[in-house]
Design a protein around this nucleic acid. Structure first.
Lengths: 194, 194
DNA sequence: TGTACATCAGTGAACGCGCGTTCACTGATGTAC
DNA sequence: TGTACATCAGTGAACGCGCGTTCACTGATGTAC
């Protein structure tokens, strides 16, 4: 067998990572396969050795965030999931709703960058999006005291507030309003986490 | 002057309304000018008699919701802005986070349908989006008692929660989770409104 | 009241361009001997 | 250890197609007489 299996895997991962960054910044429809492959220092023809369609790449790109760039994101934001859950949740909230995260077009969470793109995409892409939400909800839920049902409900609210606040802030023209929304969501979240 | 000014205005309004519905359902990039004009029972060539670019149409489509389809939306949802503000805010919240609104792809609020499209569009489009948010925040803010600053902050949180809850529910595959997010956001909103 | 005219909303062919995908190929590589 | 070979990751030209926009035109209409 020429080329190792690891070599192909690495190439694939490089394509996915480039796609994730470009989709995040420009949106799914505005990024061509050519552009992704060029960014990965490859030529377009090889794309279909790795993916059966552009849509499959989309799912892989969204999905990759959790363990890939998202892990780095958590490290940079100081989110320590091995410590006390309460502390981790507070760190997550602070990092997620930070001004830094708002401005990080390529590194930001795909839940913020791509909601309407995903809403119109295949079930596979939506499933990848759901993974991200489930991870966030679980982190919040695990940090909340009291009965399970109540904690889960509160965690869902915190997730909707976090993603919603950031989506709004990203969508508005850079303005005091955008900053106010982000700030208000953060402050309310901190209070709700306790 | 052949054709009345009103005639041209009406044609323009028809194009904008068709565009709003199509953008809402399929997204800005997935709807061609040809498609919009066809839906409005016109041919593509006439488009540039009314708009200088597709992007200008986008801004008009988002902007049109507030006084156009949005007014109808409020009427159907039983939102009575001429009555007590408290009551109007409760009606708005119930309508906005309703299952019916979630399923209404063409008639839904553009803040839910098009956030990432708008985030990548021109400042004019983003300004139109901001109009919608300002209207919602004002409605909530006016219904909340207490000091202005606190009421405004609470109103921003309610808007982030409402839009965020619906954006997440729309983006997830139709699942229990989507329904849970919508429900949790609604229940928390009701409590926060008081 | 009836008619000729000027206006401009609307038409439809055409433009250059970039898209997702296919395909015959090339050449770097791990393996068998 | 050195070499011939089979594999398949990667190449780049080509495909049909739909896009946003332009433009020379047509013909329905309100107005002047």
């Amino acid at each position: 067998m020429p080329y190792t299996a690891a070599h192909k895997q690495q190439t694939r991962a490089r394509i996915v990572e480039c796609a994730r960054m470009l989709f995040n910044r420009y949106g799914y429809d505005n990024v061509s396969i050519d552009r992704v492959m060029e960014e990965a220092e490859l030529t377009r023809g090889g794309f279909y050795n790795h993916f059966k369609s552009k849509e499959e790449l989309f799912a892989a790109a969204v999905s990759s965030f959790l363990m890939g760039r998202g892990a780095q994101w958590r490290a940079e934001a100081g989110v320590d999931t091995s410590g006390p859950p309460r502390k981790a949740a507070r760190q997550m909230l602070a990092g997620y709703l930070s001004r830094k995260h708002l401005g990080d077009l390529e590194g930001q969470c795909p839940m913020i960058a791509l909601p309407s793109d995903v809403a119109r995409a295949s079930a596979e892409v939506q499933a990848a999006y759901q993974q991200l939400l489930v991870a966030m909800v679980s982190l919040f839920e695990g940090s909340l005291p009291g009965r399970r049902a109540a904690a889960r409900q509160k965690a869902l609210v915190l997730a909707a507030l976090s993603v919603g606040g950031m989506v709004l802030a990203r969508t508005l023209p850079s303005s005091k309003l955008a900053e106010d929304v982000r700030e208000a969501a953060y402050k309310h979240g901190v209070k709700a986490l306790g």
